[in-house]
């Protein structure tokens, strides 16, 4: 768990004083990062600091580079210029470093990406057993603990295909948590869900936030952003256009592009 475990205060936690106090050392630092897909310049001069227990929501129109940016943080995508430093390790081509960072950074995907040939319990213990080298019994205990937490312990012996989308996504969250990550990245975790299942996943994420997990969430759930985020980033055309506390961000957007975006999704 993170050192700032005391940060289990109540939400809404739009308070800037929260975790984001400038004294703590950032756990993620992105400095002047650029990325290209072939000729296409997807990310332009990204600068971002994330401190432990800080919760950041990234929004913006599709194709703006939100997902690509967070995928760079655990090197699912490679950046071509600038620096990304996670937990004091700089991301380079060094495979050992990449694996070390991935151990500390959990990720939840839009399409869950559970392993269909393994049971729920096996999905959860795979990382701890093979990467963290935990004994099987201990890994299973941890797995059951987190399954309880996402309210799905009774499904432990089932296969992912037998679960609903919302249940699968909660399993995916639990799978990441089993690695005891320092940071969690969420890549549009509710976009592929049926409407009635969105809430159960958001509830899990909110309780995670209450426990002080450091989170970066790409989402279109503005309610979630308002109540949970310390900071909201707005991206457009590969840049971070605007960055603010949620209250300011929603009530008084500075940038013209942000105003347009918000007017379109908030009606």
């Amino acid at each position: 768990m993170s050192p700032n475990d005391t940060h289990t205060d109540t939400l809404p936690a739009g308070d800037p004083a929260g975790a984001a106090d400038a004294a703590t050392k950032p756990i993620i630092e992105i400095i002047g990062m650029h990325k290209w897909f072939g000729e296409f310049h997807v990310l332009k001069d990204i600068n971002l600091e994330v401190r432990p227990t800080e919760r950041i929501v990234v929004c913006g129109p599709s194709g703006s580079g939100k997902s690509t940016m967070i995928r760079c943080i655990n090197r699912l995508e490679e950046h071509q210029r600038g620096k990304i430093i996670v937990d004091d390790i700089e991301l380079t081509n060094n495979l050992k470093n990449i694996e070390k960072i991935r151990e500390e950074v959990g990720m939840v995907f839009q399409h869950f990406n559970l392993f269909p040939h393994l049971t729920i319990l096996e999905n959860l213990t795979l990382g701890p057993i093979w990467v963290r080298k935990l004994p099987k019994k201990e890994a299973e205990e941890t797995a059951m603990y987190y399954l309880e937490k996402v309210h799905i312990a009774e499904q432990a012996r089932k296969y992912p295909g037998q679960l609903s989308g919302g249940q699968q996504q909660r399993v995916a969250v639990a799978r990441s948590l089993c690695m005891k990550p320092k940071v969690m990245l969420f890549d549009e975790p509710t976009s592929a869900l049926d409407p009635e299942m969105v809430k159960e996943v958001l509830d899990v994420m909110i309780s995670l936030a209450q426990e002080g997990m450091t989170m970066i969430v790409v989402t279109h759930e503005m309610g979630f952003a308002k109540s949970v985020a310390h900071r909201v980033l707005f991206m457009d055309d590969g840049r971070i256009v605007e960055e603010n506390e949620p209250e300011e961000f929603f009530s008084n957007p500075q940038h013209e592009r942000t105003q347009l975006f918000l007017s379109q999704i908030l009606h």
């Binding site: 699912l76 694996e99 070390k100 151990e103 990720m107 990406n113 392993f115 990382g127 690695m179």
Partner: peptide, 27 residues
């Protein structure tokens, strides 16, 4: 095998051989 399976295995920190042996080849 969908790309997501490789990505999920990668993001857990599994190395190439573990990914292949535990996730990709069985499927």
């Amino acid at each position: 095998i969908p790309k997501g399976q490789f990505e999920a295995a990668d993001s857990l920190g599994l190395n190439y051989f573990q990914t292949m042996r535990l996730v990709v080849l069985p499927q």
